[in-house]
Computed example of a mutant assay.
Amino acid sequence: MEDAGGMRACAAGFVARVTVRNRLPLDYSVASLRVVDFLVDGLRKGGADRERAHDTLVGLGAYVGEVLVRRAGAEWVDFDAYQQAYFGQPVGVRMPDGRIWNPLGKVVNRFEVGGAEESLQTFYLTLHGRARRAPARRAAA
């Protein structure tokens, strides 16, 4: 598992791997989170167990987090021991208002529970603490 400093590269690597043969619109837009919902649902319907789907779920979680960074003004953070125990993940994002969110855990919830209430696009759209207008961020080289 990556630390906060490696999550942008984790997301970029995931996007590169899954889009090499597919024309998936993973462009870090809010609308692309519907594609993430679709991909997670496909894993579930395909009968993958969590262990087999682990790397894909981490990649999708990194992607969702990177959408929050790019579109909502969040920043990647390493969770402290308490947060790791609470969220079950080593990293998450901090919103401009200081709230902490767990995009990797949200992806796992979508995988395990499914359903509209676990939609990652809805998660973003109802997310508290977003910047009114996220600052433009250049991609790291």
Rank of each mutant, 00 (worst) to 15 (best):
M1D: 10
M1F: 13
D3Y: 10
D3A: 01
D3N: 12
D3I: 06
D3S: 07
A4N: 07
G6C: 03
R8H: 14
A9F: 12
A12V: 05
A12I: 08
G13C: 11
V15S: 10
V15M: 12
A16M: 09
R17G: 11
V18L: 00
T19H: 06
T19W: 05
R21Q: 13
N22K: 05
R23K: 14
L24Q: 00
P25A: 08
P25H: 02
L26G: 03
D27H: 01
D27F: 08
Y28L: 03
Y28P: 14
Y28I: 04
Y28G: 01
S29H: 00
V30M: 01
A31Y: 05
L33G: 06
R34L: 01
R34W: 03
R34M: 02
D37N: 12
D37M: 11
L39Y: 11
V40M: 01
D41T: 07
D41V: 08
D41R: 14
G42W: 10
L43R: 05
R44P: 12
K45A: 14
K45D: 13
K45F: 12
G46P: 06
G47W: 00
G47L: 02
A48Y: 15
D49W: 09
R50E: 15
H54R: 08
H54Y: 14
H54C: 01
H54A: 11
D55G: 04
D55R: 10
T56C: 09
T56L: 10
T56Y: 11
V58D: 02
G59A: 04
G59N: 03
L60Q: 04
Y63Q: 03
E66S: 04
V67L: 06
R70C: 06
R71W: 01
A72T: 10
A74M: 02
E75R: 01
W76K: 04
V77S: 00
D78M: 06
A81T: 15
A81E: 13
Y82P: 09
Y82N: 15
Q83V: 06
F87Y: 15
G88H: 06
G88N: 12
Q89M: 13
Q89Y: 13
V91L: 08
V91H: 13
V91M: 08
V91P: 15
V93M: 13
R94S: 08
P96L: 00
D97T: 14
D97H: 00
G98M: 01
G98T: 12
R99S: 14
L104S: 02
G105P: 09
G105T: 07
G105E: 15
V108P: 13
V108N: 03
N109H: 05
F111L: 06
E112W: 02
V113Q: 11
V113K: 06
G114W: 10
E118I: 02
S119Y: 12
L120Y: 07
Q121I: 13
Q121R: 02
Y124R: 07
Y124Q: 09
Y124K: 03
Y124N: 06
L125W: 07
L127Y: 07
L127F: 03
H128M: 00
G129N: 02
G129C: 12
G129E: 05
A131C: 00
A131R: 05
R132C: 09
R132D: 01
R133I: 15
R133F: 04
R133P: 09
R133A: 03
R133Y: 11
A134M: 07
A134V: 08
A136G: 00
A136T: 10
A136R: 11
R138L: 10
A139E: 10
A139F: 11
A139T: 08
A139S: 04
A140S: 07
A140D: 10
A140F: 02
A140V: 13
A140I: 11
A141D: 13
